[in-house]
Amino acid sequence: MEGYYADEAASEFTDIPATDTPVWILGVKYNALHDAAQIKKDICTKIWVTYRKGFVPIGDTEGITSDKGWGCMLRCGQMVLAQALVNLHLGRDWTWSPETKTAEYLQIIHRLEDRRQAPFSIHQIAQMGVSEGKAIGQWFGPNTVAQVLKKLVKYDDWTSLEIHVALDNLLIINDIRELCKTGGISWKPLLLLVPLRLGLNEINPIYIKALQNCFKFHQSLGIIGGKPNMALWFMGFMGNEVFCLDPHTTQKSGTIGKKETEDEILVDLTYHCRKAPRMNILTMDPSIALCFFCKTEKDFNDLCDNIKEHVVTSDNQMLFEIILNKPTAYFSESFAESPKHSPNLTKHSEDSDEFEVL
């Protein structure tokens, strides 16, 4: 069995060095020396989505039955969406255990399962990717998976989310308020994705502090990114290292059902991992998407304030721009058409080639 009880080595949690170095995981600060148990529980609670095999074919009856080698970025998108749904329906402080049967939790897993009917299954994401110019079985980049998820959430009322993808390195506050404020009054929870390219072949070190600051915001849902040839979901950092969940494990497809049978219980275990690899932040691929969740308008206003104070710090180091209203001359719907752009960020006309078939 993969995942939670994969093998003897995986029966131990990720090693957390016993130092006073702060550990940040999606807006929560821990002390590596004193909070090891809480860090491990937080990591294991995260919904881990990996390659699967043996699912119903994507497309026709002769279609693809495994996403091994091409679905890593799609799986990272599922992980970010899953965490947004956990924060919305269960709360950021909710924790998972092998005995968990919470109705909301089961609903979230059902939406990710490898079934054609599941709203955010590999089938739905891959097929919606066709509208973004990606053939079924072709890898995605961060921007593509963001655009696909934005379309798919429109078809699932229970999810109760709006997704905004901030293009052209530009976050326009009033565009988001217009999107999320139903009838100009009620706020609909927001999953905000900001695709960026922070260098040519590697991340420019001048952006590291701002990236680390993003993990500290309580609205943080981490970073969709990776390293050459593999997509990863980064969910925190410790010193100059980032923690990630890695989708590059191929597990058998299955359903969690009501988590009553032995098989259903075992399937649930495959969605949780005791290992969160660490890597130097400078080895991250420069093509990323920052991810944030704002349950309320107050959350969004607070996020904007934090971005202005800790991310948009100077013309030389700003990750992206944040403004109140769309510029008069602004007409772009894609990176390729952008009339405005932060001077130190390389223009990103489409998903880069860094995420290749393994």
Rank of each mutant, 00 (worst) to 15 (best):
D60T: 06
I58M: 13
R111C: 08
A146D: 12
I125H: 04
E62Y: 12
S287H: 12
L245R: 04
N213Y: 06
K40S: 14
T21Q: 14
I265A: 08
E297Y: 08
Y105Q: 04
N213C: 09
D67G: 09
T255A: 12
K275T: 11
T61H: 13
L161A: 04
M128T: 10
A36F: 07
T159Q: 13
V148S: 07
P343V: 11
L198E: 04
Q124A: 13
Q38C: 07
I173R: 03
Q147V: 02
K209L: 13
L245D: 01
Y155E: 14
I64M: 06
K347F: 07
K53D: 07
G226I: 02
H248C: 03
K298N: 14
L149C: 10
C291Y: 00
D156L: 06
Q138L: 08
T21W: 05
C214P: 01
D7S: 15
F55Y: 14
G77T: 02
Y207R: 07
W94L: 05
F293R: 00
G184I: 03
I25S: 00
S131N: 12
V165D: 10
F237D: 02
I64K: 08
A103F: 10
D67W: 00
D60E: 11
L26E: 00
K259G: 03
D305W: 11
G236K: 00
N213D: 14
V80E: 02
S352L: 06
S160P: 00
N31S: 12
